[in-house]
Amino acid sequence: MTFKESLTTLPQYILPHHPLSRLMRQLTHSNNKTWKNLFIKQIASHYGVNMDEAIDSDINAYRSFNQFFTRELKPGVRAIANEKGDIASPADGTVSQAGDITEGNIIQAKGKSYTATDLLGGDEERAAPFKNGKFTTIYLSPKDYHRLHMPLNGTLQEMIHVPGRLFSVNAATANSVPRLFARNERVVAIFDTEIGPMALVLVGAIFVASIETVWHGEVTPPTVKDIRSWQYIRKNAPKLKRGEEMGRFNMGSTIIVLYGNDVMKWEDGFVAGKEVQLGEKMGHTLI
Rank of each mutant, 00 (worst) to 15 (best):
T117Y: 00
L119V: 00
L120M: 05
G122T: 02
G122Y: 02
G122N: 01
A127Q: 02
A128V: 00
A128K: 12
F130Q: 03
F130A: 04
K131P: 01
K131A: 10
N132G: 03
N132W: 03
G133Q: 03
T136L: 05
T136H: 01
T137D: 01
I138E: 01
I138M: 08
L140P: 03
L140M: 14
S141C: 09
S141A: 15
S141D: 04
P142W: 09
P142K: 06
K143P: 02
K143S: 12
K143D: 10
D144W: 09
Y145T: 08
R147D: 02
H149P: 07
M150W: 04
L152C: 07
L152M: 14
L152W: 09
L152R: 12
L152D: 06
N153E: 14
G154K: 12
L156K: 10
Q157P: 03
E158W: 11
E158H: 15
M159N: 11
I160C: 06
I160Q: 07
V162Q: 08
P163W: 05
G164L: 07
L166N: 10
S168I: 02
A171D: 15
T173P: 06
T173A: 11
A174G: 13
S176Y: 15
V177Y: 09
V177E: 08
P178T: 03
R179M: 07
L180H: 05
L180P: 10
L180N: 05
F181A: 04
A182D: 07
A182L: 05
R183G: 03
N184W: 06
E185G: 12
V187A: 06
V188I: 15
A189W: 00
A189C: 12
A189F: 00
I190Y: 08
I190V: 15
T193E: 01
I195C: 03
I195K: 05
I195D: 03
I195Q: 03
M198F: 01
L200D: 00
L200T: 03
L200V: 11
V201T: 12
V203R: 07
A205Q: 06
I206M: 14
F207D: 07
F207R: 12
F207V: 11
V208W: 06
A209K: 01
A209W: 02
E212K: 13
T213N: 06
V214A: 04
W215D: 06
H216K: 12
G217W: 03
G217M: 05
V219S: 07
V219P: 05
V219A: 12
T220Q: 07
T220F: 02
P222R: 09
P222W: 00
T223G: 02
K225Q: 13
D226N: 13
D226Q: 13
S229G: 00
S229K: 15
W230I: 11
W230E: 07
Q231K: 15
Y232S: 04
I233F: 01
R234T: 14
R234M: 11
K235E: 14
A237P: 05
K241Y: 02
E245A: 14
M246C: 14
R248P: 01
F249H: 06
F249A: 08
M251N: 13
G252N: 13
